[in-house]
Design a binder for these strands. Structure first.
Lengths: 195, 195
DNA sequence: GTCTATATGGTGATAGAC
DNA sequence: GTCTATCACCATATAGAC
């Protein structure tokens, strides 16, 4: 792996662990095993390097969401796949956590990819919910973009609960709670499910 | 207000805005208009001052939750009151945001009041949901502590969505989405609601 | 490309005068 | 109680040798 790659990957790790204000160039260089000169050769500074790292993390997340939601099957199952996917719960969301970073929010460049990534996930989930409403799988009074927001919020907030309590149970509880609310009723005998 | 009070209140503000790693003693002193000596007279250091600030913020939050959930009325209305209460959405949660702070999570003293406060809110909400299940207001298959976790997570995650998008709409959407899922069905004619 | 100085200002804490 | 040194160390960036 090139020096530049190592810098980006190490920055991604540290941004995830400690956020932007909590990550110093020095810490990145030490963990990457790279000298200071290399970083300022490939990037203009901390912000520029963080930008490359955040963009890549955003791309990765969008790809993951695509993979989960592009699957076949009922809308409920795809939403459930998103909610139940394997996660490093106690580490939190590498994109979402940046929203609590004052220097990220204050910087349009850094804020951009964060905003786009979260918006993308919400939009893709809203589409799936819309399909579920259209097919009669979900109640017609449900508003897809509201349900999508609730789904993403449950995940993002689940990380908060998990980290607050020091365990993953709270995350799982929130997800199960939401799924229990979302689950299509046991379906009265048979009003032609494939209609 | 005493110097000590000013320090605590200013620290609460800065922890809310910038988190623990993003807040320096110097910044606190400047905003509070206090010299360095005063801080080290009243507190042993940054951690000690932050602890006082976090404890107070936690107490305040527990009091707010008590006020909202102790009200009379259907469980749904009380949960809705919690979800719909006035909030400074774009500032996020002064307690929840600390869970993303690596130095808070790594420090048992600082972590303590954060954990207790979030656990308290979840427990109080779970009690309300349990009442709703017991009274038949909510479906019997719902698990109170799971619904409570979903409710708190929706709020905590709603802040993330709001800050990511730079507006409060996403928060409101998530809350409305959850409430639409939670809302007791329009109630078939009249199976004695006060039974 | 990568390295090691070097520089300026911030961080977190202590010392001791008033 | 509050203030102003003072301190050792870190943060971020630049300069220039190799």
């Amino acid at each position: 792996m090139s020096t530049q790659e190592r810098l980006i990957e190490t920055t991604r790790e540290l941004l995830w662990e400690r956020g932007y204000v909590g990550t110093s160039p020095k810490a990145i260089l030490q963990r990457a095993g790279v000298g200071q000169g290399s970083m300022y050769h490939h990037f203009t500074g901390k912000q520029d390097l963080a930008l490359a790292a955040i963009r890549r993390t955003g791309e990765e997340m969008r790809a993951t969401v695509d993979r989960l939601l592009d699957a076949d099957g009922p809308a409920y199952d795809r939403v459930a796949a998103y909610l139940l996917r394997e996660r490093d719960v106690l580490r939190g969301c590498p994109v979402g956590r940046l929203t609590m970073d004052p220097d990220v929010i204050a910087d349009d460049e850094l804020h951009g990819p964060v905003e786009e990534t979260i918006a993308y996930v919400r939009a893709r989930l809203a589409d799936v919910v819309q399909e579920g409403v259209d097919s009669g799988e979900f109640a017609s009074h449900l508003v897809p973009r509201e349900i999508a927001a609730a789904v993403v919020a449950t995940v993002q907030g689940g990380y908060v609960l998990a980290r607050a309590s020091g365990g993953t149970d709270a995350f799982d509880a929130g997800v199960r709670g939401l799924l229990s609310l979302l689950k299509p009723s046991p379906a009265p005998p048979s009003p032609a499910p494939t209609a």
